[in-house]
Amino acid sequence: MSFTKQLRIENEDVFQRIFTHPFVEGIGKGEVPKEALAHYIKADYEYLNAFMHVYGLAISKSPDRQSIRLFHDQIGFVLNSEVHPHHNFCEQIGMSYEDLQGYPLPPTADHYVKHMLYHAHHGGIGEILAALLPCPWTYYEIGVELMKTYQPEDSHPFLTWIQFYADVRTKTLTNLLCEHLDAYAEQASESEKIKMREAFRKSCQLEYSFWEMAYTQEEWPAEEEVVR
């Protein structure tokens, strides 16, 4: 069994919690509070900016052109394609995409970004891949689950979002990341594989927490509360 298949089995509990989160189920039902959608877009826009920076750090550590091409293509996907599901959410809340950009990251998203940057700076390519992989992987499986469970019609408010993540291109990009991580895992020591497992697990958990953060519209505590 490949390393990434093992990771998927080990983290089945978190994947299932993500699939049944009220925000994710709300996308399938076409019923998500507008405030939660806006909070999600504000955080995800800045999170994806950081995600591209992590891919850039991975390029700087890449040993060959194949790896450089992989991370370059992933940056292109985020930069040029992943705006479409954001626009779908914006249409549903009647706000422009530009008006939801430039906001500070909420606590959970801030932690997630710093978690990835830690592994990007201190880990090798395998460790970086393990930290990055849960984001595209969980989104692809969310798309597939929502298509299967709700079978959205053309009139569904979030059809564009669901179709985007269930699409074969998202699957292909995710599979490429899995193949590269498997290749690095074959050469990795046991201690390195432990770090990869830990990075992957925490990213899965933070994916769940990101949905919760958006749904509850998480904010930083007020300054006076911190002092108290």
Results as ranks from 00 to 15, higher is better:
28 G>W: 10
104 P>R: 08
92 Q>A: 09
176 L>E: 14
176 L>A: 12
127 E>H: 09
203 S>M: 09
214 A>W: 05
147 M>D: 01
128 I>H: 12
9 I>C: 02
98 E>C: 04
48 L>V: 02
130 A>M: 07
72 H>E: 10
179 E>L: 10
221 P>I: 03
128 I>K: 07
95 M>P: 07
62 S>C: 04
210 F>E: 01
115 H>I: 02
227 V>T: 10
35 E>D: 05
177 L>P: 06
193 K>D: 01
66 Q>K: 15
213 M>C: 13
20 T>V: 10
221 P>H: 10
113 V>D: 03
55 Y>C: 10
110 D>V: 00
49 N>E: 06
220 W>V: 07
162 I>D: 01
95 M>S: 07
108 T>L: 08
123 G>Y: 12
102 G>A: 04
32 V>L: 09
66 Q>E: 14
99 D>S: 15
4 T>K: 00
55 Y>A: 03
217 Q>R: 15
28 G>M: 08
129 L>F: 00
81 S>W: 08
175 N>W: 05
225 E>R: 08
83 V>W: 00
81 S>I: 03
115 H>F: 03
163 Q>D: 03
139 Y>W: 09
64 D>I: 14
109 A>M: 11
138 T>Q: 02
149 T>L: 13
40 Y>F: 15
123 G>K: 14
44 D>L: 02
12 E>V: 13
83 V>K: 06
220 W>H: 06
163 Q>H: 10
96 S>G: 14
223 E>M: 12
184 Y>N: 08
125 I>G: 03
2 S>T: 15
62 S>Q: 02
197 R>N: 10
53 H>I: 15
191 S>W: 04
182 D>F: 11
